[in-house]
Simulated assay, not measured.
Amino acid sequence: MTIVPVALGARSYDVVIEAGLLATAGDILAPLSRGRPMPIVADANVAPHLETLRGSLNAAGVSTETIIIPAGENSKSWATLEQLTDRLLALGVERGDHVIALGGGVIGDLVGFATAILKRGCGFVQVPTTLLAQVDSSVGGKTGINARAGKNLIGAFHQPKIVLIDPRVLDTLPLRQLRAGYAEVVKYGLIDDATFFAWCEEHGPALLAGDAAAREYAIAHSVRAKARIVGEDEFETTGRRALLNLGHTFGHALEAEAGFSDRLLHGEAVAAGCALAFGYSVAHGLCPMEDAIRVAAHWQAAGLPNGLSAAGISAPAERLVDHMRHDKKASGGQIPFLLAHGIGQTYLDKQVSLDDVQRFLAIQPN
C-alpha cells in the first residue's frame, strides 16, 4: 500500500494506492459512515467494480444506495447535476455524510460539484476507475460541469475526504481510455521532471500493455507530483498550480470543436495540446526543436494524437481561437498559456497574443 498525503491544512487528506484495494475499501470507509448509508454514484461502465465496492462496504457494516449516471462527458451538465442533487436530497443526505464517486473524471467532477453545493457542502470520497482520473482529476479538489461556452466553466474547489486508487481496475479499461489517461501521466514529466519523461519513453509501452509494476509506479509518481503542486497552490492563485494545465488551453479548444464528445477524449486533446504548446514554443525560439520532436514522437508511439490532423480537427484557426476566448483562466482579456523552454521546463506566459496563436494554428496540418 502506498499512501500519498495531500497537505492542505484542515482540508488535508490521503490518496491510498493498492492493488485490490476495492475489495477492502469498506474497512477504510466505515469510520466515515457514522452508521449511516453511503450513497455511491457511478455510471453503467463500472458495474463489476460497483459490485465489488458494495460488497466490501456491506461486509464492513455500511449500507449503500446506488445512483447510476449516464456515461460520457454529456453528463457534466446542469440537467444531470439537478437530477443528482434531487436524488441525494431524497435519500436524506446530511452535511456530515459522504457520497462516493465511483468512476472516471466525469463522475468525480460531477459528484464533487454536487457535494460542494448540497446543503452548502457535504463530504465525498473519490474512487477513480480510469487512469486519467487516478493520476489527475480525483486529486486536487477541482469539480464542475460544462457549459455551452466551454469545458468546466461552472464549478467549485471542493476537496475529497479520501481518494482510493486500485490499479487493478485498469485491467478492464478499454485501450483507448487507457491511452487517454496516459497523456496525463506523461504531462508530469513535461512540466518539471525530464527524468520521468525519459522513464515514460522507456516504460510507457509496458504500462499500456498491462505491466502492473509500471502502472503502479506511474500512478504513485503522478499522484505525488500533483499533491506537491496542489499543496503549494490549492486555489491556483500563485501560478504554480497552473502548470498542471499544460496542453489544456489548446486541448480544450479542440474538445470544444469536437463537441465535448467521444470523437476526441480529454486525454487525447491534452496530448495534441501539449504537442501544439511545444510547437508554438519552438516557433518562437523558446524551446529546442529536438525536444518538440521527442514529445510528438512519444505521443505517436503511444497511439495518441500529436497535432490537429492526428486529432481529427480541421476547423479554421479563427474558430479554435474563439473557443479559447472562453477559457476560465482568462484575466483582463488575456489568456495565460503554458509554454516550454524544453522537456521538464514548462512555464506560464501571460503575454501571448491570440492573434499570434491564430497565425500559428493556421499553418498547422489539418
Rank of each mutant, 00 (worst) to 15 (best):
R319C: 06
A297Q: 12
D14G: 05
N152W: 10
L339H: 13
A315S: 13
I154M: 09
V139H: 02
A147V: 07
R179V: 04
P316F: 09
L89K: 04
L308N: 08
D262S: 10
E202T: 13
Q345S: 14
H98E: 04
V15Q: 01
N58G: 10
V230P: 00
E255P: 11
V15C: 05
L50E: 03
L89E: 05
S331T: 12
N45F: 06
A156Q: 06
F197G: 07
L244A: 12
L131Y: 00
A44I: 08
L338H: 15
I28S: 14
T2R: 11
D136S: 06
L304V: 10
T66I: 14
G105Q: 01
G344P: 15
H221E: 10
G333V: 05
N146V: 05
Q134I: 01
S75M: 07
L21T: 01
A218C: 08
E82D: 06
V15N: 01
F337H: 14
R215P: 00
A258C: 13
E257Q: 12
C287T: 12
R359S: 14
T237A: 11
D211W: 03
Q300S: 09
H266Y: 03
H203G: 07
R224K: 07
V169M: 04
R319H: 13
P316S: 15
R36I: 12
R240I: 14
R34S: 13
A25C: 06
P48V: 07
L178N: 03
P316D: 12
F113I: 11
R179N: 10
P205S: 06
G342S: 11
Q358M: 08
T249E: 09
S261I: 07
H252D: 11
I313W: 10
A253H: 11
H284F: 12
L50R: 08
L53A: 13
I67F: 14
D327V: 03
R241Y: 05
L84Q: 05
R148W: 11
L84K: 02
D349M: 15
A218Y: 03
Q334P: 11
V223E: 00
A340D: 13
D327G: 06
I165C: 00
G144E: 09
S75V: 09
A258F: 06
L50A: 09
I3A: 10
V139I: 13
I335R: 12
V99G: 04
G231W: 01
V186T: 10
I28F: 12
L243R: 12
E201A: 06
T346G: 15
V135T: 02
Q159E: 09
